[in-house]
Nucleic acid binder design. Structure first.
Lengths: 283, 283
DNA sequence: GGCGACGATACCCGTACGGTATCGGCACCA
DNA sequence: TGGTGCCGATACCGTACGGGTATCGTCGCC
């Protein structure tokens, strides 16, 4: 008997309907039916009476529902007590300025639920340092984008976004449904300040050294497009800003959304965050 | 977080030694180490302090040990309460007279622990009905041997025993280390009464009709060997009786030790027994 | 009697768990 | 100081189980 199975049972007992319970559990109905049957074999009693009229709890099922609820409540209490015994915990998360998307939102919600006692400090950073100050020890874990110099860091991919060119809506190329880097070769591009991670810099410049204004945050980059007609770049999937168009660049490698931390840092709060992030970004 | 993991942790916390804990859990050390590490990531705290001096509980670990113990106790209480709510339960187990071996002993112990409230009735039956009265409804589940007519029954293999010929110790063939059925063709064999399952009958006669005394229990069969010089047969693995020798028969198919129940009988107590039996016979 | 709803069954696939082999660090000792 | 043994961590592999889709069986209900 495992806790997962008990959670399944509680859901079915609440819904009294396998299909709806499966939906609430984000799974399909057959494995749920199977899990309940295994639970019945495990406890040695029929828990649910299935008939065409519907699903009903047997006396044994009612008893198990009650017990299972208190058991699952106790698991939450357990988490809180362990966290309290571990002492005041803090984790500092670095987030690249344009990475506060839906995945990060879900991550934050799930992480607060899982570790209610942990103080999460957020440090949002501009585009000049994709590691968000990991190496300097300013953050414990970074939610950011690749590619960048990974030496001394452990990097865990969460997603991969195709990349597009940002152009003024009235730009002749803006009507194209896809572009190649060569189409933009004669344009002015944006630049990052000196000292920026060269892999990162080179990636956003399409591998070539470019001429153009220096930017530090996404807004500056977009403004440069609007006012100076430079080429900008951004991951696809976000809504294009007003007056601008984003056209997929077919010969740019996708930009990997990643979690990164200092190699060898065994802080369980970091590992837990990465684990939760993996689930939060999956769907 | 699953209960299995908590059981692992409690064991490690009690032993303060991964190797010994793994031995107690009947597993090897590496997956245990990994499971504890995952648990630490799950609760977001280091639970054990590993050093060359040994393994120590951290404050968080001590808190979790306490909580986990009460949680696991509660699971046992849950089982009892569900069984009580299910009402007085009875299961009748048929055991073929020579099948009360170590596997069955372990099964009985494990089943009593898992289902303390269930009244288990045992019906030991002689060799004339390998189904132990399943079809007549005399038993819910049979622990027996194959082969027999399986129509209307569901049969689950637990083990397979090679079969040997039982001979008087002074029989010239008794010194051989293996025999074929042909070596015994001119002997008198034992018989089962009329009406015995023909597949079962034929199996123990080596596929041929034979002449010889009718027996109903193993003892009669052995006595017939001793007093009348007939050929007897029995599964290997048991100690040969006094004054008798058991010689492997290389052209007899092994006799399958099985659990069997009436097809479509969904009684969870039966399924649970079969599941526990599978584990009990495995090692 | 055809249809729709719903749980059960059959079958496939990927992941995660447990296994063996090996490493790395540390104490103890010659 | 180098050798040895202990012990937890890591690497890698195979399998069993959990979850998926497709389909069935059964029972109300127009």
């Amino acid at each position: 008997m495992e806790l997962r199975t008990l959670r399944y049972f509680v859901t079915v007992a609440e819904e009294l309907h396998f299909g709806r319970a499966a939906a609430r559990l984000h799974m399909s109905q057959p494995p749920l039916s199977r899990a309940i049957k295994q639970l019945e074999n495990d406890v040695g009693a029929v828990l649910l009476h299935r008939s065409s009229a519907g699903v009903m709890l047997t006396p044994a099922g009612a008893a198990l529902l009650d017990e299972a609820r208190t058991l699952l409540d106790q698991v939450d209490r357990l988490r809180v007590r362990v966290a309290a015994a571990a002492g005041a915990a803090t984790i500092t998360v670095g987030i690249l300025s344009d990475s506060a998307d839906r995945g990060a939102t879900r991550l934050a919600a799930a992480y607060r639920r899982r570790h209610p006692g942990v103080e999460v400090r957020i440090r949002e950073t501009d585009l000049t340092d994709p590691t968000c100050g990991l190496r300097a020890g300013l953050v414990d874990v970074a939610l950011t984008r690749g590619p960048f110099d990974e030496t001394g860091l452990t990097v865990h991919e969460l997603r991969a976004d195709p990349v597009g060119a940002v152009l003024r809506a009235d730009d002749p190329l803006a009507r194209r449904d896809r572009l190649e880097l060569a189409d933009l070769a004669d344009r002015r591009w944006f630049q990052f300040p000196d000292g920026t991670d060269p892999i990162w810099q080179s990636y956003w410049n399409g591998g070539e050294p470019r001429e153009g204004p220096v930017v530090r945050v996404v807004q500056e980059c977009l403004q440069a497009v609007l006012w100076n007609g430079t080429v900008g770049m951004m991951p696809l999937g976000h809504d294009p800003p007003e007056e601008l168009a984003v056209v997929p660049l077919i010969d740019m490698a996708p930009s990997r959304v990643v979690a990164a931390w200092n190699e060898g840092d065994a802080n369980p709060l970091i590992r837990s965050l990465v684990q939760i992030a993996t689930a939060a970004y999956r769907d």
